[in-house]
Amino acid sequence: KLPALEISPGEHKLQYNYCLWYHKGSMTKFKSPNDYSKSLHCIGRCASVEQFWSLYCHLVRPSTLKPYRELHLFKSGIKPMWEDPSNVKGGKWVIRLRKTKIDRAWENACMAMLGEQFLVGPEICGIVLSTRFPEDLLCVWNRTSTDQSSINRIRDTLRRVLNLPPNVAVDYKPHCDCLK
């Protein structure tokens, strides 16, 4: 349990507070959710636009991360795991992107979430960047995999803010499929 974040005068408050998590993965699967949980590290939090930038500007560019690293920008109180109560009935949109596109895509997706551009209320849980080879993955997690109108709206907003060409596929995957 972390202390509440304070916002200085002049800072611009965000609709939600966020936590940035880092995870160094590997080719081998984790034996249990508990092992995975222990491998997640909260590397910073933000409650205002200014706090987000001061955190973001300390990060290396996603394109320079080695394969099998993950960055998760999630709402405070939601752990970026399928098993979290906020995620257990949810799912994610998955976009595969070339390394040359990932830095801008990650930044734009973060901007859209922090600025509430998705217009789906509390449906958004967070955004994940996963470095793979040869392509990286950008995912947007939402709470309810059966909420078709929110899911469609998230997809349409993603296509717009990332300026995705029509030939780039965007796939939805409920977490229950992953948990099986």
């Binding site: 200085s8 611009h12 965000l14 200014e50 930038w53 001061s54 734009n108 859209a112 600025g115 551009q117």
Partner: peptide, 21 residues
């Protein structure tokens, strides 16, 4: 309450504000 909505351009403008350093 009111939802706090920020456009991308507005957020980008705050990237270099003294409070963001």
């Amino acid at each position: 309450g009111t939802r706090i909505i920020y456009e991308r351009a507005f957020l980008m403008n705050l990237k270099n504000s003294p409070l963001s350093r």
